[in-house]
Amino acid sequence: MSDESGARPAPAPGPLVFRNDPSDGFGRYHDLVGASGAATARRGEIFEATVAAHNAPGVMLFDRQIVGAEHRREPAHIRRDGFEHFYLQVLRSGLLMTGPLGEEQWLAPGDAVLMDAAQPQRTVVVAADYVTVVLARPFVEAALPDARGLHGRRIPRAAFQGLATFQGLGDAVLSLARRVGDLDAEALSGAAGMMADLLAGVSPGGERRDDAVASASDRLRAVLFIDAHIARPGLDVAAVAAGVGLSRSALYRAFEAVGGVEREITRRRVARFRSALMRPGELRSIERLAFAHGFSSPGHCSRQFKATYGLTPGACRAGLREVQGGNAGLRLHHLRGWYGEIGSGA
């Protein structure tokens, strides 16, 4: 859309990209998370982090691929910084547990969680591809006056039908993340209102979905197996069922609510491929990376990548080279400024 002068609206600021440098280890990531008002620690021997950040009035969006990290916001952090924003956390794929301290729960792909920065919380990321949308408190409380009482509320993909455009709240967030690079600043700032409208459809009195314990356990074991064998071209339902000792029907039931087993295999392949593509010093061609992550062809990989992230692998890699050659890296002063603005309701 153009104004009367024919000029296009200014693009939204970002993305600003952070990727952990092996020579720096965990240090810069630790400092960046600290700017958001949380402590962080490594989980396990392997740590990887890629974060693409977008900012506009009233809203921030972080598209993350993280391996081996824990984020924790304690009462001391809350007293010190006074942050009062809300945020939605939505899992694309992988293993992520989040919630109020002592009440954390594993998410399934497409699940969303509403978190209140003014209350203690913890997130454990084993290996996950997920999106966080930070919202100014006035936007959320205008839609949900008792939003404080929904801290840690998990909104399953299948349990909420909002605007007809989306299959659920999580789907709306992931759709926004796919398209955010094409939005100008005005359009991105409107995302805060859209999220508030969708949140208004969440019933405060609604019950959390009660997943069968057996299905949740089966799904977790299967996801771990998929991640460990993601490079196998023949990885399919039969291979996963045999690998975790389940019947195919039990495996189908475990993944029914999140789109099926094959869908999860594809999601994890795409996420692991993207992490490799964005890794500092990665010199393999896109074709070699596609085959290394179990795709049947580079074309299949490209189609699945674009369907998930809104751009081709080639465009993603080209964008990263531009970032490396310029000053578009995510830095502490960016986050400090952004969180200050969102705290003021800007």
Score class of each variant (00 low, 15 high):
E141S: 04
H85E: 07
A159L: 13
L144S: 07
A118Q: 02
R148L: 02
F83V: 05
F86T: 05
R153P: 03
A164R: 15
A158I: 08
T123Y: 03
L150I: 03
I155D: 03
R153V: 04
L114S: 10
V90T: 10
A108H: 14
P100G: 13
E103H: 15
L88R: 02
L95E: 14
T132S: 11
S93A: 15
A118E: 00
H85L: 05
A159R: 13
W106A: 14
A142M: 10
H85C: 10
L91T: 04
V126P: 00
V133T: 03
R122A: 11
R137C: 10
G149W: 08
L96A: 08
E141H: 04
D111R: 08
A159P: 09
A136E: 14
G102M: 14
R92G: 11
A128V: 01
A128G: 09
V113T: 13
T132K: 09
M115S: 01
A108P: 04
W106N: 12
L144K: 02
R154G: 01
Q119M: 01
T132L: 05
R122I: 02
L135A: 08
D111C: 03
L144G: 10
Y130S: 05
L107P: 08
A159G: 15
D146I: 06
E104N: 10
Q105V: 12
Q89D: 10
E141N: 03
L101P: 04
T98K: 06
Y87C: 05
A136Q: 02
M97F: 14
D129V: 02
E103Q: 14
Y87A: 08
P120V: 09
A142T: 14
G152M: 06
V126M: 09
V113N: 09
A127I: 12
